[in-house]
Simulated scan of single mutants.
Amino acid sequence: MAGKSVRRKIERSVAITRAYLRIERIQKLEKISRIYLRELADMVGCDGCAIILINTDKAKILAERGFTKTFKKLEFNTDVPAIEHVVNTKQAIFTGDIQSNPTADYIPHGCPINSLICTPIMVNDEVRGIIHLDSPKKNAFNKKDMEFTELLSKEISTAFRQSFQYSQARHVLARDALTGCFSRRQFDADIVADITSAKKHKEQLSILLVDIDWFKNYNDFHGQPKGDKLLKKVADVIASNIRAYHKIYRYGGEEFAILMADANQDNALCAARRLQETIEQEQFRGEKKSQPNGKITVSIGVATFPSDAVKKGKLIEAADLALYRAKESGRNQVCVYIKKK
């Protein structure tokens, strides 16, 4: 018996190590959870098991086996009794005869579960996930199963924390610190994805390049701090005057880019003119003192996929040429790309 117990303990340690080595370079919680769940299901006999992500008042299944046969859902509120208990108390549930004790209230009426383990996955003293095991058999799980599940929850906690940190870092990189717009790095990734999607669905895609006219005059006259405030305000005006599913980026310096999914040239031109007129009518502090025409204005270049270009570089170049023509034609206007004959 002692030899069997030691062997079982070694097997559990090997399972943890094997899972850790496989998730070391993975940052997506779904993939991490599937790896750990596979090891859990192999080590502990159960009819249903799941790793659940807790996010405020929502619970989402990251990985599962047999769980949805009983509960039918992949996402639900955290007011489900068993989940609510674990989240509020930060304590595990472990029972082999759920129907004959108060834990019966933790499962839906008519649910065939008798044995249940729910252990919290803690991140910074907060329940951010739950490992769920169930079986219709009584006393299907023993103390060793519970200990292994708790050990696994600690390992998953580390993976969760690293994944959250990675997501936060990606969010920071995706945004421009000054204006709150998406960053140039994000633009380079999104335009490729948007062109691919437009090709797949046979849709059009337009890009607007927006440049603040005579920004250097404003920045030199008022100083960089006020120049930064101007950039932020212009970004806010743009964001308030485009559709929610269109994306604005700080493209560089005083230049912004807008990706307009499923927008043809007419749609994009109409939006660009509306934006140009809105900014011209907006009041900006100090504009009369520093700007040649006494107003903050923008020039906008418009290009559309696939009529103007089908590749990322060529589409950006087309919008840039249209912007150049708008500025060369006197600024404070919108120009669309015109192909050379």
Score class of each variant (00 low, 15 high):
residue 295 K to Y: 10
residue 143 K to A: 12
residue 223 G to R: 09
residue 158 T to M: 14
residue 37 L to P: 01
residue 59 A to R: 07
residue 123 V to N: 04
residue 141 F to N: 05
residue 293 N to G: 09
residue 99 Q to T: 10
residue 44 V to K: 10
residue 156 I to E: 04
residue 45 G to W: 13
residue 93 I to Q: 01
residue 250 R to T: 13
residue 77 N to H: 15
residue 157 S to Q: 08
residue 216 K to W: 04
residue 124 N to F: 14
residue 254 E to H: 13
residue 332 N to Q: 11
residue 289 K to P: 03
residue 51 I to Q: 02
residue 161 R to A: 02
residue 78 T to L: 09
residue 56 T to V: 11
residue 167 S to L: 11
residue 126 E to F: 09
residue 26 I to E: 12
residue 244 A to K: 09
residue 282 E to Y: 03
residue 189 A to G: 06
residue 72 K to I: 05
residue 306 P to V: 10
residue 55 N to F: 03
residue 327 K to A: 10
residue 320 D to K: 15
residue 328 E to F: 01
residue 277 E to Y: 00
residue 236 D to S: 09
residue 172 V to S: 10
residue 91 Q to M: 13
residue 3 G to Y: 13
residue 121 I to Q: 03
residue 126 E to W: 00
residue 99 Q to C: 05
residue 13 S to A: 13
residue 89 T to V: 04
residue 29 L to A: 08
residue 221 F to M: 10
residue 129 G to Y: 00
residue 80 V to Y: 12
residue 128 R to W: 01
residue 223 G to T: 05
residue 30 E to S: 10
residue 62 L to M: 08
residue 87 V to I: 05
residue 317 E to T: 11
residue 85 H to V: 06
residue 81 P to I: 08
residue 341 K to M: 12
residue 135 S to A: 12
residue 279 I to K: 02
residue 309 A to N: 05
residue 14 V to P: 01
residue 68 T to L: 09
residue 157 S to E: 12
residue 23 I to E: 02
residue 341 K to A: 15
residue 230 L to V: 02
residue 142 N to Y: 13
residue 104 A to V: 08
residue 109 H to M: 15
residue 288 K to C: 09
residue 226 K to L: 15
residue 328 E to C: 00
residue 90 K to S: 11
residue 132 H to A: 01
residue 290 S to T: 11
residue 44 V to W: 03
residue 158 T to R: 11
residue 59 A to V: 11
residue 123 V to G: 03
residue 294 G to H: 07
residue 220 D to R: 03
residue 277 E to V: 00
residue 184 R to D: 14
residue 201 H to R: 15
residue 111 C to E: 12
residue 306 P to Y: 05
residue 200 K to L: 15
residue 142 N to H: 12
residue 22 R to P: 01
residue 83 I to F: 12
residue 183 S to R: 07
residue 76 F to Y: 15
residue 61 I to E: 04
residue 265 Q to G: 08
residue 334 V to K: 04
residue 216 K to D: 08
residue 229 K to W: 00
residue 270 C to V: 06
residue 213 D to Y: 07
residue 302 V to D: 02
residue 11 E to P: 01
residue 315 L to I: 08
residue 299 S to G: 13
residue 128 R to E: 03
residue 267 N to L: 09
residue 38 R to A: 14
residue 58 K to L: 14
residue 69 K to P: 02
residue 281 Q to P: 04
residue 293 N to C: 11
residue 332 N to I: 10
residue 139 N to I: 06
residue 240 S to A: 13
residue 160 F to H: 00
residue 286 G to Y: 11
residue 322 A to H: 08
residue 33 S to Y: 00
residue 86 V to K: 00
residue 65 R to Y: 06
residue 47 D to R: 14
residue 173 L to D: 12
residue 187 F to W: 15
residue 154 K to P: 01
residue 80 V to H: 06
residue 284 F to I: 07
residue 6 V to G: 02
residue 201 H to S: 15
residue 281 Q to F: 05
residue 165 Q to D: 10
residue 273 R to K: 08
residue 139 N to P: 05
residue 146 M to D: 07
residue 78 T to S: 12
residue 336 V to E: 07
residue 74 L to A: 04
residue 270 C to P: 00
residue 19 A to I: 02
residue 68 T to Y: 07
residue 224 Q to I: 12
residue 283 Q to L: 13
residue 117 I to R: 04
residue 157 S to H: 04
residue 47 D to K: 12
residue 58 K to I: 14
residue 226 K to N: 14
residue 208 L to S: 03
residue 63 A to F: 03
residue 109 H to F: 14
residue 194 D to Y: 14
residue 159 A to T: 04
residue 110 G to E: 06
